[in-house]
């Protein structure tokens, strides 16, 4: 994990409203419902920004007392009093419900995971929501450094553990990925005491999706390293060729200064040392 010297006391103006979108996750091996990992990281980031004033929104079936409700209650177990559920049937499109919710209620920052853990998991919802609301969206946010009424400074996660600093105008949508702070543990008591606020909302069946065929994931074939050779001699050469990388440069009798220089030259040529 990266240090978050700034995040523990990020100055949030009292007027700013932060919301997090939460979904019912799925354990990657057992498939059992749970809090989605990335959504939980988004909630964690929201709690660090504004404590228990963070509002949680979920769009989905009502499901009183079932295993889905228990999964949603896990978010409440992180220390939030209530969660808004926009009631929908199974297989409905969450976008119109969420868009109208945020148009009515308003928010300044919407946090979400990068992609869901079940179903299509296209990761499109934050983008579509941002487009509907006309807000900018920033993907794979690792940390929010500072916020004021006009803009926020954000740390974006890049491959290889690198970070980039961005300035984005408020309001905005941010998606959170694995690089963000690990979500806090769930406390059972608060999770059961927390309040699930049901709300009627727009219910549009996702027609396109109902035509799709879903099957358990097939193992993808590994790509074989096929050598295309025109002649028998080439094929023979390809089959008997020794793997590359055998026998690098060996420095034995040089002075230790020359040896160190060779290492430094390699680091420079690889762009490690600037």
């Amino acid at each position: 994990m990266l240090p978050d010297a700034n995040s523990s006391n990020t100055p949030v103006s009292s007027g700013l409203k932060v919301a997090a979108l939460v979904s019912v996750g799925q354990h990657p091996k057992s498939g059992r419902p749970r809090r989605a990992d990335q959504d939980a990281r988004a909630v964690e980031m929201g709690i660090r920004l504004c404590g228990e004033h963070l509002s949680l929104v979920h769009a989905g079936p009502e499901g009183k007392g079932d295993i889905r409700e228990q999964a949603l209650r896990q978010y409440l177990g992180m220390g939030i009093k209530g969660l808004t559920i926009l009631h929908q049937q199974e297989g409905s499109d969450a976008l119109p419900a969420l868009a109208s919710h945020f148009k009515d209620q308003g928010a300044d920052i919407i946090l979400a995971g990068m992609r869901a853990e079940s179903g299509e998991a296209s990761g499109m919802l934050p983008y579509l929501l941002a487009d509907r609301l006309g807000w900018p969206i920033v993907s794979s946010v690792a940390d929010i450094i500072s916020i004021n009424e006009n803009d926020a400074e954000i740390l974006q996660a890049l491959p290889r553990g690198q970070r980039r600093k961005l300035r984005v105008s408020v309001p905005f949508v941010a998606t959170v990925d694995q690089a963000a702070q690990i979500p806090r543990q769930i406390a059972f008591g608060p999770s059961q005491r927390g309040h699930l606020k049901g709300q009627e909302s727009i219910d549009e069946i996702d027609q396109v999706k109902s035509d799709w065929e879903e099957t358990p994931a097939r193992k993808r074939p590994k790509r074989l390293n096929i050598k295309k050779a025109k002649s028998a001699a080439d094929r023979f050469k390809a089959a008997t060729a020794k793997p590359q990388g055998e026998g690098g440069k060996i420095m034995k009798d040089e002075s230790s200064q020359e040896k160190a220089q060779a290492i430094l030259d390699l680091l420079v040529s690889e762009g490690i040392v600037k």
């Binding site: 079940s118 299509e120 065929e213 879903e214 099957t215 994931a217």
Partner: peptide, 9 residues
């Protein structure tokens, strides 16, 4: 699909 558990055609 999500969590690499389903294929969608």
């Amino acid at each position: 699909g999500g969590s690499d558990r389903i294929d969608i055609k």
